[in-house]
Design a protein around this nucleic acid. Structure first.
Lengths: 188, 188
DNA sequence: CTGGAAGTATACCGACCTGTATAGCTAGGG
DNA sequence: CCCTAGCTATACAGGTCGGTATACTTCCAG
């Protein structure tokens, strides 16, 4: 990871861009705005990141890494394979509470940048399959008869909860997803 | 509904805009492109729709109406309240097969246009709560002990399936969602 | 037969976009 | 002591954006 080798200005740029991209959308945020908010010159942005697209990728990469770290922490604290599945939904709750009411950044970015060859699509696919793999392994370890089927279902509940949390006005989406997940692991 | 009172050119504009907005994203499609693809002058677009934003709203409204009609058709054909729940997922499968691989247009639009006061957010919320209400009524009619809880869970599966179908690379997401829904209604 | 509605064609506006160029400042290490 | 990395400041290029203005045509209904 190159995250720690960032210069101070680059750090500020990435933090500012993350905030703005996530809450206002990628297309709605220009490079000039990022520069102004970060207290930095546009030249510095282009010196450090090369282009807006690469800044977007850096933003999504870092955010994804932070999200995965939250999940891993919750997984490590779970006493067993069944509890670990539930812990992923605890991680989602913590994540959305601290970080935002706008759903999954990767999904949103993929919605904006629709070109099939765009790098953010690959990032999104990779993250979803990482989580899918996590769920599959946990259900395998728990001796479930259909680990992959369970994993897809858990992923659907997870993504559904993230989306509905993003559009809002549907109460306790994450709670309900966790409840369904608990029922799945307890009587599977 | 004002859909049938559209002039021929307006009809072409709305059809073209729907195609482009859905597959490329709203921000990625300019008014000039819509005009060119529809074989129409920009002036005609502004004469008929007033602004890009109102064209976007018209696009989402009409698409939503078509989607709801598909759902209603599947619901009407279902022999009972439990089968009707499953039928919604059949509707989703038919809908995505005929109309696109890019998930829910309302969710995507809400992801792009993040301003909380933007009209598309209200549209998205309204549609999700319509579907939620449908599910709730069906579970109530089936005598389920927790109709609203069931409805939220079904909505999560539905939205999750739509999203994962959009990012792709997760096989049989809709099939799995329907399977989970069937299990929910058969042993609730 | 005439007037208005629905178009086309073309040109333009100001704002904003990503990205580049030029010049100068500062601090730390060989 | 000077060179380079990292930065600031400012200006600008080239393009696209949503939206408007003007002038002409076509066609149908009162």
């Amino acid at each position: 990871m190159t995250a720690d080798t960032l210069t101070p200005a680059a750090r500020r740029i990435l933090d500012t861009a993350s905030e703005l991209f996530y809450h206002r959308g990628i297309g709605a945020v220009g490079v000039d705005l990022i520069a102004a908010e970060a207290g930095v010159t546009k030249k510095t942005i282009y010196d450090r990141f090369g282009s807006k697209e690469r800044l977007i990728v850096a933003y999504l990469r870092e955010r994804d890494a932070r999200w995965r770290a939250v999940v891993e922490r919750h997984l490590a604290a779970a006493p067993g394979h069944r509890e670990a599945v539930i812990a992923v939904f605890d991680a989602l709750e913590e994540w959305t509470r601290s970080d935002g009411e706008r759903g999954c950044a990767l999904v949103n970015a993929a919605a904006e940048l629709s070109a099939p060859a765009h790098p953010v699509r690959a990032l999104a696919v990779e993250e979803k399959q990482w989580l899918l793999g996590r769920f599959t392994a946990l259900r395998e370890a728990a001796g479930a008869p259909d680990p992959e089927g369970d994993a897809v279902e858990l992923l659907l509940l997870h993504e559904g909860a993230a989306v509905m949390h993003g559009v809002g006005e549907v109460h306790a989406a994450i709670d309900r997803a966790r409840l369904a997940a608990r029922r799945l692991v307890e009587q599977g």
